[in-house]
């Protein structure tokens, strides 16, 4: 294809996106669009899968049968999200095995928040309330993103995430209204998860390398700082309902901006965790790689069995 032809295709492509048309797997797309989407969708899928670990770690210890059932269902939903996000990603011409390989080798990233440990039962509440809460803020705009399979997957994901967020809030509410010991457990979880949740919305706009292009492709509708502000403004009143204190002495309502001012985020910590040196990075990867390696003979057996079955069927047909 000549350079001119490519330019013309690119122009048409940009116009389609501007008209809010969906791009489908068989449509022509710029290579950069394809690559950016593989990066973002797979990162999202990996986050779901790694995100199963901190919560999965509490399934056997959930305090009641009702909570155990709800937690199992939640972690199962996350596996389901991973499944349809990987499928959406595969429509861009990359296999799930390749994507796993990128995760396991450290080439692909996942949400840094899952590199923090889930230490007490209240963390199940805080993760649902704050982490899923921040995820929803990130994800709702993606229901209208330009790439069709991703947008459709996100509609399903968002419905379930908002259910998880309410479930997390409800765990916190029960603790906050419980015994002093329970309330203390809830406050401690909020103290530990608050700042990492703010970091989840990504680096500040001046440090975010992908924002501009992503906004153009509607992979992003608001900047990281806007999303973070939205999250804080929405969450502070919820903390008030719980009677818990957000661990930020500089948090203050700004009448003029009609928003909360908040304290400085420790970006050194953020980058340390992103670069692989958070409290749980090594353990999370060890768990994922371990499960994959231990499962190899099982996957091989399934393949071999399917092949044998197919061969038998063909023989019968002859």
């Amino acid at each position: 294809m000549s350079e001119e032809q490519i330019k013309s295709l690119e122009r048409q492509f940009d116009e389609r996106i501007a008209r809010d048309e969906k791009i489908e797997p068989k449509d022509w797309m710029p290579e950069k669009y394809r690559k950016t989407h593989i990066r973002q969708i797979s990162q999202h899928a990996h986050s779901e899968i790694v995100g199963m670990l901190p919560e999965g770690n509490w399934i056997t210890r959930a305090p009641s049968l009702r909570r155990k059932v709800a937690l199992l269902a939640k972690v199962q939903d996350e596996a389901g999200h991973g499944l349809y996000l990987y499928s959406a990603c595969e429509t861009l011409g990359v296999s799930r095995d390749e994507l796993y390989e990128q995760l396991h080798s450290g080439k692909a990233k996942y949400s840094s928040i899952f590199n923090y440990p889930a230490l007490t039962w209240a963390d199940m509440g805080a993760i649902g309330w704050l982490v899923d809460g921040a995820a929803i803020i990130n994800q709702v705009p993606l229901c209208n993103t330009s790439y069709g399979p991703y947008a459709r997957a996100m509609i399903r994901v968002c419905k379930e995430e908002s259910f998880h967020q309410r479930q997390g809030f409800e765990i916190m509410l029960k603790l906050a209204n419980g015994t002093p010991e329970q309330k203390e457990m809830a406050q401690d979880a909020l103290n530990r998860w608050w700042w990492p949740s703010l970091m989840m919305l990504g680096p500040t706009d001046d440090k975010s390398v992908h924002t501009e292009q992503s906004m153009k492709w509607k992979l992003k509708r608001k900047t990281n700082d806007e999303l973070r502000q939205q999250f804080i403004d929405q969450t502070v009143p919820q903390a008030d309902v719980l009677g818990l204190t957000i661990p930020d002495p500089d948090l203050k309502w700004n009448e003029e901006r009609q928003s909360y001012d908040f304290g400085a985020i420790d970006w050194d910590e953020f980058w340390q965790v992103v670069k692989g040196h958070g409290p749980m990075n090594k353990e999370r990867m060890k768990a994922r790689v371990g499960a994959w390696e231990r499962g190899e003979w099982v996957r091989d057996a399934a393949m071999a069995h399917a092949q044998k079955k197919q061969e038998r069927k063909e023989k019968q047909a002859v």
Binding site: T60, V75, Q76, L83, A291
Partner: peptide
């Protein structure tokens, strides 16, 4: 089975065992 959640040989069996 709950011990295994997130550690299955692939996503499909992980989901099934959790289920």
């Amino acid at each position: 089975l709950g011990e295994l959640c997130g550690h299955g040989p692939n996503l499909e069996t992980d989901i099934a065992c959790t289920n």
